[in-house]
Design a protein around this nucleic acid. Structure first.
Length: 601
RNA sequence: GGGGUCGUAGUUCAGCUGGUUAGAACGCCGGCCUGUCACGCCGGAGGUCGCGAGUUCGAGUCUCGUCGGCCCCGCCA
């Protein structure tokens, strides 16, 4: 026994048990344990030390028999790393700690070594000690030592292992695809990697392995999966990091139903194995059109009611000018009935109005209905109109509710109500756990209108149109729907996929619709198009967000809690300081010069 | 690019319409204690109020700018 440092884990100090694993039936065995000191409690000649490792905590006891041992024990501090030898013994019956797995026993210590002393940590390394996220990120290695974070790491591992086992059993091969790839023009901004050997050229980090997994299908791999890192240089959110992990799946000779079926079974397996929740499959499926009309979003939380209703017909003959003029111009009046919102104060309703305006509404009309009605536009409303609203929303006589109405064109009024619904849903679902409302959203349009009057792919340009919409491709491409499907859970987009194009002509046609002509297509996707000419099987797949899945299963609010080393909203790693400047010399080798303006910052 | 919010002791926070000595709890340091496990008791140290300007007799508090964390819009599957 002496002051720390150069001890290594020799045979002598090799541990025989883990801290959280000593139990009553091990009593009287001699053990060697190692771990982190969490707490020292002194009582004169008696000292207790809580020793922790990933498996749990156990109490060590030192007493006066050996005063040197005891005084060294008293010098122990939180987060010191030690190994110790002792005998497991029962605690006195009235001293059993029911809150600890190991609380029936304790280790009577004969000797110990200190591998390393810890400075006083910047925050208390325990779930009981609060710490702000920036501090936690800077000292992530301490943060991860907390039980809640260890639990999150374990959760993620369990999901990953279940995925690997399940897919492997179903005939899928796990295949790695390159991290240094060719930049593709569509989609998110790329992270670029300069090439040293090819002056002036760049690799991109993959936004997803999309093209590679399609090539693997052409290769006859038949069933592929990968836990793939995907990099996107876009702004961050609670559920968006610059790098995230997808459970990436691709299959040959299958239909949309096959992929949905497999995904459902995978989800069921994961929830069952990892957290003992039995999901009901199949999940409901709704079309994109229905999702937008009824929920105002393509990732609806379907578990909490609040569907958007069309109330235009109720107000056809209204005396309320704001509505009548919009209806006359071909607009609509849409609304939701928010029963829990009846008690909202004026200022809380004001906040909803603000949300509405942010999303482009001219205003938000609200009515509190019960036996009567209370609304700023009460004077303009007829009894028929009020009765009509109650009928539309299925409200019984005297039933209380807050009805919110938005008038305008269909898209805006629906989007506004969707946004309001989302802000309301968050507070509604916060106190619920273990409730998972899965839904498939499918039949997405293949294209959306882009800002400049052109078109851009809704998902990506490799998805196949629905058979019945093929003829619209020439006449009205915006009306063409595709074999595209998103998996949504509690309002979070967990994954999306599609059946792919496997025919060169069709692929070229789709590319030309978004302004990529033949020559251009050859430069950018030539290898894909060429591959399609050498026997490409029909194929399709899906990619499920591992980080988001972990977040939902863990009940968290941010995927950062489920990523070992995440970045801040400014895409900075507070722990290691990435990104950073690099030496001039390094840049020169990469044929890069930073403009002066940026250097001065 | 834009909106919101936060920044005070090592940590988490309080600090009113500006007012003279900036507090609490936990942590830390010293002492006492043989059954604690959120131990208890006694004592102590610890502050560039994010940073920079401005208003004022006087700024933690008000104004502007700036930096950083978080939430959101845009953006992004």
């Amino acid at each position: 026994m002496s002051e720390p440092s150069l001890y290594h884990v020799s045979k002598e100090w090799k541990r025989t048990h883990r801290c959280g694993e000593v139990r009553k039936n091990d009593v009287n065995t001699d053990v060697t344990l190692a771990g982190w000191v969490k707490k020292v409690r002194e009582f004169g000649e008696l000292t207790f030390v809580d020793l922790w490792d990933r498996t749990g905590m156990v109490q060590l006891v030192f007493d006066s028999q050996d005063s040197e041992l005891n005084s060294l024990a008293k010098s122990l501090k939180a987060e010191d790393v030690i190994a110790c030898k002792g005998r497991i013994r029962n605690r006195p019956s009235d001293m059993i700690n029911r809150d600890m797995k190991t609380g029936e026993v304790e280790i009577y210590i004969g000797s110990f070594v200190i591998f390393n002393r810890s400075k006083v940590p910047p925050f208390v390394v325990s779930d009981k000690g609060k710490a702000n996220e920036d501090l936690r990120l800077k000292y992530r290695y301490l943060d991860l030592r907390r039980d809640s974070m260890q639990k999150n790491l374990r959760l993620r591992h369990d999901i990953a292992m279940t995925v690997r086992f399940f897919l492997s059993k179903h005939g899928f091969l796990e295949i790695e695809t390159p991290m240094l790839v060719k930049r593709t023009p569509e989609g998110a901004r790329d992270y670029l990697v300069p090439s040293r050997l090819q002056a002036g050229k760049f690799y991109a980090l993959p936004q997803s392995p999309q093209l590679y997994k399609q090539m693997l299908m052409v290769s006859g791999v038949d069933r592929y999966f990968q836990l793939a890192r995907c990099m996107r240089d876009e702004d961050l959110r609670a559920d968006r990091q610059p790098e995230h992990t997808q459970i990436d799946i691709e299959m040959s000779f299958i239909s949309e139903d096959d992929i949905i079926d497999l995904s459902e079974k995978l989800m069921k397996k994961i929830f069952s194995e990892v957290c003992g929740v039995e999901l009901d499959i199949p999940f409901p499926r709704i079309s994109y059109k229905t999702a937008m009309a009824d929920f105002g979003t393509d990732k609806p939380d379907i578990g909490i009611g609040l569907e958007i209703h069309d109330c235009t017909d109720i107000f056809r003959a209204t005396g309320f000018r704001a509505f009548s003029s919009i209806i006359a111009e071909g607009g609509v009046v849409r609304g939701i009935s928010y029963e829990d919102g009846y008690g909202l104060s004026k200022s809380q309703i004001k906040k909803l109005e603000k949300t509405a305006r942010e999303k482009g509404a001219k205003g938000l009309v609200w009515l509190k209905v019960d036996g009567g009605v209370n609304s700023p536009i009460e004077a303009f409303l007829s009894d028929d109109e009020i009765a009509g609203l109650k009928r539309e929303f299925g409200l019984d006589e005297g039933q209380k509710s807050l009805i919110l109405l938005v008038a305008g064109n269909f898209e805006i009024s629906t989007a506004v109500l969707g946004a309001i619904r989302k802000s309301v849903v968050i507070s509604k679902t916060q106190d619920k756990n273990n409730e998972y409302h899965f839904v498939w959203v499918n039949k997405f349009p293949l294209f959306f209108e882009s800002g400049e009057g052109g078109m851009e792919p809704a998902h990506h340009i490799f998805s196949i149109p629905l058979e019945e919409d093929l003829e619209l491709l020439d006449k009205n491409p915006l009306k063409v729907r595709g074999h595209l499907y998103d998996l949504v859970c509690n309002g979070v987009e967990l994954g999306s996929g599609s059946i792919r194009v496997h025919n060169r002509k069709l692929q070229e046609r789709l590319l030309s619709l978004i302004g990529i002509d033949r020559q251009n297509a050859g430069e950018k996707f030539g290898f894909l198009l060429e591959a399609f000419e050498y026997g490409a099987p029909p194929h399709g797949g899906i990619a499920l967000g591992l980080d988001r899945l972990a977040m939902i299963m863990g009940g968290g609010d941010s995927i950062r809690e489920y990523i070992a080393f995440p970045k801040t909203q400014n895409a900075v790693s507070l722990m290691d300081g990435a990104p950073s400047r690099v030496e001039e010399e390094v840049l020169r080798e990469l044929h890069i010069r930073i403009s002066k303006k940026e250097t001065e910052k």
